[in-house]
Design a protein around this nucleic acid. Structure first.
Lengths: 346, 346
DNA sequence: AAACATTACGCAATCGTTTGTGTAAATAAA
DNA sequence: TTTATTTACACAAACGATTGCGTAATGTTT
């Protein structure tokens, strides 16, 4: 029962024509006669022929593969971004190969090596938290493989990027807290090794300053990875302060939700005693009570934009001269965790 | 600046040896001298050589590619499963190529075609909701490409499968409701086109019967895709019944969470008036208040098992004779939505 | 020193397509 | 009918690596 795969040659033999004719017939090449073409196509289907893209790609020097390197697929933001990438890519005839770095630099290096070997036409990457050496990514540049970063980008490398305005979003979030009357605003900060979290912290501080509030260092909780546990820990520290904050801006939703729960456990009310705002608009932000005000970072659109960008570079290499940065819009989604008094039922 | 990629030939020329020597040296073949080997490897690194796996794969007739066809990456269950697949696969030296069907039969067919063409060594699939014709998957069998289904399997096709015991899990969930004293138990059912949801419905009915309760048809809400909206709709219908149910088993977490929120909006208490139980243990099930009792279906492990299974078939084709089904364990995770009186703080 | 074994490498075919070029046969123009 | 043009296909060389087999050069044994 070991049917080996049908090749062009076998079809050629059965029809007494040359392999090149089969190849052209399958592509509806005009220089092959109508009758031959249809005969070939009919027989190919009957024999269960599938083109071997390895061979074709080798010959054509194009794989239609887009490699994606990301920390973890099972994070909402990432999977949404991939979904966007896949949508655009597959519509344009590209395949998406996924590599998880698990936030490990070594894994990311290995991923990059595999990607180079697989002759991917382009690469989209969201950097691992650990990564602070970029040689493994230079390989792409050196071999003219288009590389697009998204979200967690690397400013040291001159490539195309898709980001959101983390600084601006943080300003917006913080000013929203100010606008609803918060006087003492704390921040749960992400890993400062990553630019996005540095920017959000800076945005928070800038918003305070702009509004005549002096940023205090003790109102910043630096966390490793914005986990539930770290969120709760930070919340407890804030809540036990003599001058308790009345607003907390968290750099992600996970920690923000944890903060809300901790505030409630502490016997205080959200948003009346403490307003809370998160970042990313994950599904859970709608579930927590009160529903979490947050920044929607449009992960799906980021993925789409990254994919379009890399495909454009693949198909139009001239344009690859300048490095371009696309900034995706972000929206403040106001929900009950910052809405006192009235409740918006939906 | 258009450096074309470095090939084995170029290295060979620089060193005045033949390409075959380079190839062997790079693989540490014993028949190549120590000195030559190290010289080759050094130069290869210096020149930035990356093996072209297209060529190697064509020659070796192996791609180390595992194709994954799933409905949507951005669903928690799916992304977790993929994560498990990727972990096992990459440890074993395989790449994972992802295709989203978006629950569309046409897309799934196209995905299968692309996968055949890409010469993937194996395929893991979770079927689209629409799919009820399986010819596109037969291509894999016909060409000796190992195929493993997970979760949404196809019983008509004789392949390896990784599933959970949906029937048993549903029995377990329903009996849990009975054990806490529920007398009138409703069910929010998923699309009956899919076996997993049929099994869950059957399990629910069987558990009732086993415990001397007559299943009533009006206590079953048939939904299209277990969405928030459908969950809320079902809840409202149940809550407005004269003989209101005091327990609701939902076939997924999304609808269960929506049911909880609807019950609360209706002015009733969960679990005291109505106990609710979901399915899948998504992150949000921990966030909703009260926290949702649910079935943990161990998606990550399903992915791992599927990957191990397909790799075993790839590497040991003899074993491919019988079709095997792996049943992954599932756990009832009891939380506050079925725990009256005491609260388990964690 | 002759005979043999070992070491270290080269040659050339091969994987399945694609594609530039060449060329019979068929058709059209003269 | 002869010449020019088109049509429809075949030939063969790629693409870049792998690998069985052959063979010089070196080393070992008697």
């Amino acid at each position: 029962m070991k049917k080996s795969k049908v090749t062009i040659k076998e079809i050629a033999e059965k029809l007494n024509v040359s392999p090149s004719t089969i190849s052209r017939a399958l592509q509806n090449h005009p220089s092959i006669g109508k009758k031959t073409t249809s005969e070939v196509q009919k027989l190919a289907k009957k024999m269960g022929y599938y083109p071997n893209s390895l061979a074709a790609n080798l010959r054509r020097n194009k794989t239609n593969l887009i490699g994606v390197i990301i920390p973890r697929i099972d994070r909402h933001f990432q999977s949404l971004a991939i979904s966007g990438i896949e949508e655009v890519a597959s519509k344009a005839g590209y395949y998406v190969v996924i590599f998880q770095s698990n936030n490990s630099y070594e894994r990311e290096k290995e991923n990059a090596r595999m990607l180079m070997a697989s002759q991917a036409d382009g690469v989209i990457a969201c950097l691992a938290m650990e990564t602070n050496n970029y040689d493994h990514l230079n390989a792409f540049k050196n071999n003219n493989v288009p590389l697009v970063f998204f979200d967690r980008v690397c400013y040291e490398l001159e490539t195309h990027k898709v980001v959101i305005d983390d600084f601006g979003a943080a300003v917006k979030a913080t000013e929203h807290l100010i606008s609803i009357g918060c006087k003492r605003i704390a921040h749960v900060a992400g890993n400062q090794h990553m630019a996005i979290f540095r920017d959000r912290l800076r945005g928070y501080q800038e918003a305070l300053r702009k509004n005549g509030i002096l940023p205090e260092d003790e109102l910043i909780a630096y966390t490793e990875d914005l986990s539930r546990e770290e969120g709760a820990l930070a919340a407890r520290r804030f809540l036990n302060m003599q001058a308790r904050p009345d607003g907390i801006f968290c750099s992600n939703d996970t920690s923000a939700i944890s903060v809300i729960q901790e505030v409630k456990r502490f016997g205080l009310k959200v948003p009346d005693d403490v307003a809370v705002i998160g970042f990313s608009n994950t599904p859970s932000s709608l579930i927590v009570e009160p529903a979490l005000t947050t920044i929607d970072d449009h992960a799906f659109e980021m993925g789409q934009a990254a994919a379009r960008m890399v495909i454009r570079q693949i198909e139009d290499p001239q344009q690859d001269i300048a490095s371009e940065t696309i900034v995706i819009r972000n929206d403040l989604v106001v929900r009950d965790s910052t809405l006192s008094g009235e409740r918006n039922v939906d």
